[in-house]
């Protein structure tokens, strides 16, 4: 019968129209600023720099190796490497970035910088409300604006942050063990070379 298909389609829309009053699942509209949909744990927006301890400047994990600057596809990262070294959070002498800028008007949120970073220093943020009145200066974030604490990282990506902490702890333990082994070996060598007369008091 001509018109049967149209009627069938109309029945479908009528069913959906009526259904939207009873089915909770179909009520998908959210009144945005007052009410928010929770973001996914894996969500990514723009990168930020992780720091440990309470001091954002001293605790930055970044050692200014500039791998992310080179690998960044749209080239939106600008790093100046320090001339001197200073101890990082683990007490190791490292370079640090004197400038670390990300132009988020150019950044395309691809996460390549996070993947290539060997120091777990740069991670993706989930903050998306970044509108600003200043087109150029306001969208160029410097290292102070980019620095976020490890606790913040744990808050936004708990699973990933826990994995990173385990990995860093392992690395640190390995480095410590290696340093200890090296120190022991050096000590043993020194001891073998010239036997100390009275070892007991050596550490005092």
């Amino acid at each position: 019968m001509l018109g049967e298909g149209i009627l069938k389609g109309m029945a479908e829309t009528a069913r959906n129209f009526a259904g939207s009053f009873v089915s909770k699942e179909r009520l998908t509209t959210v009144e945005y600023p007052e009410e928010r949909i929770p973001t996914f744990e894996n969500a990514r927006v723009f990168p930020f720099l992780v720091y440990d301890t309470n001091d954002w400047e001293a605790g930055l994990r970044c050692v200014a190796c500039q791998i992310c600057e080179k690998e960044c596809p749209p080239k939106c990262i600008y790093i100046d490497k320090s001339k001197d070294k200073k101890p990082d959070y683990a007490g190791k002498q490292q370079f640090y970035p004197t400038r670390f800028d990300i132009d988020i008007s150019v950044c395309m949120s691809c996460q390549i910088c996070v993947e290539v970073c060997p120091f777990e220093a740069i991670k993706m943020d989930t903050e998306f409300e970044l509108a600003t009145g200043d087109r150029f200066g306001g969208l160029l974030l410097d290292r102070k604006q980019l620095a976020k604490s490890n606790e913040y990282y744990h808050r936004i990506h708990p699973t990933e942050a826990a994995e990173v902490d385990v990995r860093l702890a392992e690395e640190k333990a390995k480095a410590n063990a290696k340093a200890k082994a090296a120190a022991d070996a050096a000590a043993a060598k020194a001891a073998a070379a010239k036997p100390a007369p009275h070892v007991e008091g050596a550490g005092d």
Partner: peptide, 13 residues
């Protein structure tokens, strides 16, 4: 649902 809505629709055909 999509097919009910469209495939048999005379106007679409």
């Amino acid at each position: 649902e999509f097919e009910n809505l469209l495939s048999g629709n005379e106007i679409l055909m």
